[in-house]
Design a protein around this nucleic acid. Structure first.
Lengths: 232, 232
DNA sequence: TTATCGCCTTGACAATTATCAATCAAAAGG
DNA sequence: CCTTTTGATTGATAATTGTCAAGGCGATAA
C-alpha cells in the first residue's frame, strides 16, 4: 500500500505505541482500496479476514434478521472496525457498506493476531480500544432500553450539537432514514418525533437543526454522561 | 483472602496464563466478602475501584435513568464484572446488586492496571475477554432492535432450553419480573407474551417451561447464531 | 392453621410505535 | 429544460407495548 497513508494510521491510538518493525509488518501485508458510495464491504456471518481502517469517507455498520435491518453504528475517519471479530477469529456480527466514496485499508486478520501475540504494546492498545468500544455499546443499550424514541432523538440532537461545535444551529450527520434506523425507529416516526420536539424549540429545515431554547430541550432530554458522553 | 479460592480463580481464562508472581500480587491485594441477597454492590457513576469476581451466588447488573431502571445482564460464577471500567479507569456504567447470597472477590483496580502493564499474557487474556463481551453486547443490541418482544421471548426460551440441557421441560433462570426487564419489557407484557406463545406449544407452569412443539417454536423464533449463540 | 407478603396475572385503557398509501420536494440524469 | 428517482412528510389506521387497578396464588411466618 502507498506509504503516504502510513503516518496517519501510525497516529491512531491503536498503532501509536507498537514497535516500528511490527507496524511495518502490518503495513506490508495491508492494502488500500477506493470504494464508490453504497458498496457492500462485508456481510455478517462471513469469516473476519481483514481488519478495516477508514481513511476517508464513511461506513455504515448494520445488521439484519428475518428481512428487517438496522443501523448499528457509523464509522468515520480515521478509525478501525471489526476489531473484536478479528481478535476472536470469529465471524462478523455486522455487515458494512460505504455511505459515500471511501478509502479503506485492509489488514489481514492473521497478521493482526500474529503481531498481537508478540507486541505487548499493541496488545495493550487493543485492550484500551476494545474497552472503550464495549462501553460505547453499553451506553447505546441503555439509551435504547431506558428512553422512548422522542427522548432518544432529543438526546441525539444535543449530542450532535456538541459534536458540531455547540452553536444553536447545526447539520445532521447523515440522512434522516439512517438516523431513524440508528435511533431504532421508522422514518415516519422520526418525522413525527421532530414535530414532537417543537414545544422545546427545535426547528428542522431539511438537514439543518436549530435549537430555539437550549434549556427547555435539556430539561426534557435529561442528558446523562453515563449514556451520552462517548468519550469516557 | 483465603487461599482456598485461588485455584478456582486461577482457572479463569482471564488469569490462567499470567505469571505466578503477578497472580500472587493480585491475590494479596484482593479480599473476599460474603453478601446477603439483594444488597447493592456498586452504583453507576462511581469510580471503578475494584474488579469483581463472583465465586458463588449471582449478581444483577442494571442501569437507571430518569426514574426508570433496566436489567442489563446477570453475572454467574465464576466470572468477573466491571472489567472495562477498571481498564479505562472510568466510572461504572452499570450498578450491581446481589440476587442471592453471594461470595465475591474484590481486586483493587490499580493492581489490575499495574499487572496489566507488566504482564503481556494477562493483557492478552483481557483482550480476549473484552472482545467476547463486546460481541455479546452487540448480539443483545441486535436482539433489541430487530425483534419484537414476543420474538425476543421465544428466542430466550430456546436459548434457556439449550443451557438447561436441551430437554422439552426446564426452569427459568430467574424470576419473571427480572426476565421482563432483561428482555426490555414490562412484567405485564411478559405475562401476555407467554400466552402469545401458546400457539407454538409453549406451556408455562410457574417457573417451569415446557416446549410442546419444538419445530413450531423454532419456526416462529427463527434463532440465529449471530444473535443467540453467546459462545462465539 | 391463618395472616401477610410478594409476585404474578388479568382486565381495561392509554400511549407509543409501526404500517400502508399518497403526496411533496429536492436532487439526479437525459 | 423536463423527466425520473429518491427521500421526506402526512394522514389514516393497526399493532405493539405500557400503565393502572384489582385479584389470585403460593411461600413464609406467627
Amino acid at each position: 500500500m502507498p506509504q503516504s497513508a502510513y503516518p496517519e494510521i501510525r497516529k491512531l491510538d491503536l498503532f501509536a505505541a507498537m514497535a516500528e518493525d511490527h507496524f511495518q509488518t502490518l503495513m506490508r501485508g495491508a492494502y488500500v482500496q477506493n470504494f464508490p458510495a453504497h458498496i457492500d464491504l462485508i456481510a455478517e456471518g462471513e469469516p473476519s479476514d481483514f481488519l478495516h481502517i477508514v481513511l476517508s469517507g464513511s461506513v455504515d455498520l448494520f445488521a439484519q434478521w428475518n428481512g428487517r435491518d438496522t443501523s448499528m453504528a457509523t464509522v468515520r475517519p480515521i478509525s478501525t472496525f471489526i476489531l473484536a471479530a478479528t481478535i476472536r477469529e470469529a465471524p462478523y456480527l455486522m455487515s458494512a457498506r460505504t455511505l459515500e466514496k471511501s478509502r479503506i485499508v485492509l489488514i489481514p486478520s492473521q497478521d493482526v493476531r500474529a503481531v498481537f501475540d508478540i507486541d505487548a504494546n499493541f496488545a495493550r492498545a487493543i485492550v484500551t480500544e476494545l474497552a472503550q468500544r464495549y462501553r460505547a455499546v453499553i451506553k447505546t443499550q441503555k439509551d435504547l432500553k431506558l428512553r422512548t424514541s422522542l427522548e432518544r432523538l432529543a438526546n441525539y440532537i444535543l449530542r450532535q450539537q456538541k459534536r458540531a461545535g455547540g452553536g444553536p444551529t447545526f447539520g445532521l450527520e447523515f440522512e434522516k432514514r439512517r438516523l431513524a434506523s440508528v435511533l431504532g425507529m421508522t422514518p415516519e416516526n422520526l418525522s413525527r418525533a421532530f414535530k414532537g420536539l417543537d414545544p422545546y424549540g427545535v426547528v428542522v429545515d431539511g438537514t439543518r437543526i436549530t435549537i430555539g431554547s437550549q434549556t427547555d430541550l435539556e430539561r426534557f432530554a435529561k442528558p446523562n454522561p453515563l449514556i451520552d458522553d462517548f468519550t469516557t
